[in-house]
Design a protein around this nucleic acid. Sequence first.
DNA 1: GAAAAAATGTTGCATATCGCACACAACGGT
DNA 2: ACCGTTGTGTGCGATATGCAACATTTTTTC
Lengths: 306, 306
Amino acid sequence: MQHFFLQSVVNVHTLREQAAAAFGGRQVQLDAPEQDAPARMRKKERRERILLELRLSPHVRIADLARRFGVSTETVRRDFEALSGKGLIARAHGGASAPPHSQYPGFAERSLDRQAERAAIGESAAALVAPGDTVMIDSGSTTLELARFLAYAGTACTVITNSLPIATAVGQSGAAEVIVCPGDFLPSEAAVIGADTIEYIERFNVSRCFIGASAVSASGVSETVRGFAAIKRAMLGRSAAAHLLIDRAKFGRAGLARVCDLSEIASLVTDRSPEGELAAALTGAGVEVTLAIQPTGPGRAASAAS
Amino acid sequence: MQHFFLQSVVNVHTLREQAAAAFGGRQVQLDAPEQDAPARMRKKERRERILLELRLSPHVRIADLARRFGVSTETVRRDFEALSGKGLIARAHGGASAPPHSQYPGFAERSLDRQAERAAIGESAAALVAPGDTVMIDSGSTTLELARFLAYAGTACTVITNSLPIATAVGQSGAAEVIVCPGDFLPSEAAVIGADTIEYIERFNVSRCFIGASAVSASGVSETVRGFAAIKRAMLGRSAAAHLLIDRAKFGRAGLARVCDLSEIASLVTDRSPEGELAAALTGAGVEVTLAIQPTGPGRAASAAS
DNA sequence: GAAAAAATGTTGCATATCGCACACAACGGT
DNA sequence: ACCGTTGTGTGCGATATGCAACATTTTTTC
């Protein structure tokens, strides 16, 4: 079996070249901030390839990559260090793997900040779901945490979602039923959007929905990704009660697309008490505020303890 | 940030206990075949927890787990060895990560055998898709390979699928458009099934569809998972040409649910020429047979070379 | 075209991990 | 109560990895 593969290594390389070329067309700015006049193609390309490999198998080894790229292990090690510095990969002894969870690329870049806060918010929100409930869960990194906690706790509920990672996460528990919405797949969020999605959502009626957002202020909830606002509104319209999961970094700001008024949501789950104008508006709108108990979360302890 | 986490390690543990308990209710038979009168709870539970951890973060380290479980590293090492022997995890120096691809649990158990063959089949099938094409892709581990190669090659096509991992894989390329079908989520396959799925599929017309199956024989194509047969038929009905992706292990067998006649498929992509009755039937039905060039595949070379 | 800067390769050593052998403890069957 | 089985811990030499300093090559810049 071993030499089997070794014989075909050449073919593999050829394929990889093609892919790398195709990929190169829409290069990500990997080393943007620090060096402004950077780099020959080599380094960049190699690092892109590392990320590419990492999408295909969850773990790559330094020695393998070094051999494959025809460079020394030190070079690969340096690449790893740079990439892990940007949070694009997670280092491990002898290799590297995909960042914390996101098999979902789009999330990766941003999902490092406030990870702990989001986990706490997700955990608190999960407590709101009782066995037997039917809920809708919006896409987003905070709501994904909710999904993970639901799965972790094994809550026997029915979940309707437009997010693929959320469907997968909740489904893993085996205890929950998951209904996936149709629509156009948006890679950056690993969720579906569009008219089909909305039409489908409107077939259901649920007791609760959990939504995320880009911003919340006294004037209401808003979202930067335009297609998402409509989805959130559709979910709101079909739920007896709506819960907004949002961290304090988004207080007092406003996004491009308006989602709804504060009065339309039943509760806000966050990591710190809102203050000032927003607090007043929330009280005025009769929105209950749930404060998440600080950082705790499955999957984080391991990396933190190391 | 570090001590931050360390302070809450206790909470994490408590949470993990709960989850482990919940999980224990539907324990998988980890060491079923070899030892019939096995084991105290300890080992089993520990190994389940390892798998649980692995779902939450893509890589766990031996030292961490040893400390967390309060056992020696040797013990964890033995667990790793056992689990990797069953293909449930992939070993790495200093730790372990999720098996080859499947962030998708159900796939895991079976997706080791014939992995290379499936990759070859997927690669061959990917060559059938031209830029601009619109295709449907059925769920399954072989068709997932097709999706990965499409993404890897960056083919600019439109894909309609009922499989979440396929949607994610194809979407990653950024070059393709992906339309996801609605329906009831089936965790073991990470795909959706049901009436909604079928109804949705029937809204489209495509040039090609790629389907997998549990078995193929002279009397036709069949599938063991009942809900899937209907999906495959729906896709067949909406495609100008159908391609069956199937490895030689499934030749000459029959599954519970009948999918279609051989005459309904345009081509069969496989890893070895069919023989005897099946070959005759294929010729008779005018089915073109495409033989996949032997093992090659992204993501595999790394693990094989090690 | 030469100097400067960046990237990469090389070396040596500290450390971590591996794999094995053996010893001990816990449990189950007779 | 005995003994065999199984799971676990400990110690050790071999190997792999990490890390830092320095040499070398390549690229950039003027």
